[in-house]
């Protein structure tokens, strides 16, 4: 699978309250959550993005709560994938479990600027920065996680194989 879109950049330690504030957690409707995606980090974000666009961030993206509402809101907003220097661990596992594609790229914010056009090959993890004419390799994804992605998330994986 290939993703292509413009980069929207954020800094380090973007927490789950910034991705989807707790005041909206009285619902789990993806379309409702999407309306408030990244609201406390950038209130204009949701009105500026187009389907396929890509979030790029620094270290520890998704820190804080375990709310799966965070990857759900991002996915439902039309963002195709997230690239960050590192992810907080619960956000990382939630993303694979529910099918949001994410990539770890060292020094992501040095390699990608706001507005750069990116093309990402999900299977190889290659990130092409079309604006700069450069190609980067994201960190390899463990076999088990690749299996999850292939099966369509953790629950589909269990259905298919009878266990985790």
């Amino acid at each position: 699978m290939k993703f292509k879109g413009s980069a929207f950049t954020f800094g380090d330690d973007i927490d789950t309250d910034a991705i989807i504030p707790a005041r909206y957690l009285n619902t789990w409707e993806p379309s409702e959550l999407a309306k408030h995606c990244m609201e406390d980090a950038d209130p204009t974000f949701i009105s500026r993005i187009s389907p396929g666009d890509i979030i790029v961030a620094g270290k520890n993206f998704g820190c804080g709560s375990s709310r799966e509402h965070a990857p759900i809101a991002i996915k439902a907003s039309g963002i195709s994938c997230v690239i960050a220097s590192s992810f907080a661990r619960i956000f990382y596992r939630n993303s694979f479990n529910m099918g949001l594609t994410i990539f770890e790229l060292d020094e992501a914010l040095k390699k990608i600027d706001e507005g750069d056009t990116l093309e990402v090959d999900a299977s190889s993890g290659k990130i092409r920065n079309i604006t700069r004419g450069e190609v980067y390799s994201s960190r390899p994804i463990p076999d088990f996680m690749q299996e999850l992605v292939k099966d369509g998330g953790l629950l589909e994986h269990i259905k298919k194989r009878g266990s985790i």
């Binding site: 375990s66 709310r67 799966e68 619960i90 596992r93 939630n94 479990n97 529910m98 463990p142 088990f144 998330g153 953790l154 629950l155 269990i158 266990s163 985790i164």
Partner: peptide, 20 residues
């Protein structure tokens, strides 16, 4: 350890979890 809702759903079905 904290996990997400999908992990919890998986625990309902299997009484197991995956951990690194």
């Amino acid at each position: 350890t904290g996990v997400g809702s999908t992990d919890f759903a998986a625990a309902l079905v299997t009484a197991q979890a995956w951990l690194r």
